[in-house]
């Protein structure tokens, strides 16, 4: 693997780890493990922990995926050195 691809892959891993940390903390800690603590707080008519488990986490998941897609598009542009639209599968490019 060239240095360039190596750097791209490391940047990708860093991004994934950051996003998956949020993906883990909010639903699993906020919505399950510490739900009773958070339920002491209110979010409108919802108990906060209950809201995180039944509503908030789902919205968060959507946001996380779009952040990943956007950041990766940027990385693609930086590292590929050519037009980012050209991300056909390797096999198609070889042909």
């Amino acid at each position: 693997m060239s240095n360039n691809s190596d750097a791209y892959w490391r940047a990708n891993i860093r991004l994934i780890l950051k996003l998956l940390a949020i993906w883990f903390v909010v639903p699993f800690l906020g919505g399950i493990v510490f739900v009773d603590v958070l339920n002491e707080f209110r979010f409108g008519g919802y108990k906060l922990g209950f809201w995180i488990a039944q509503q908030g986490s789902i919205y968060l998941f959507v946001v996380l995926i779009f952040i990943y897609a956007r950041q990766m598009t940027k990385l693609d542009e930086i590292f590929s050195g050519k037009d980012s639209a050209d991300t056909r599968s390797t096999e198609e490019q070889i042909k």
Binding site: I16, L20, P27, G31, F61, L64, I65, A69, S89, E91
Partner: peptide, 25 residues
Amino acid sequence: FLLGWTGGYVLLATCLAPYLRKYGK
């Protein structure tokens, strides 16, 4: 169910789908 059947898409989007698409079969 609400968390499990939606949260899997984050794993799919970051850890599987892009690379398997790149594989291209």
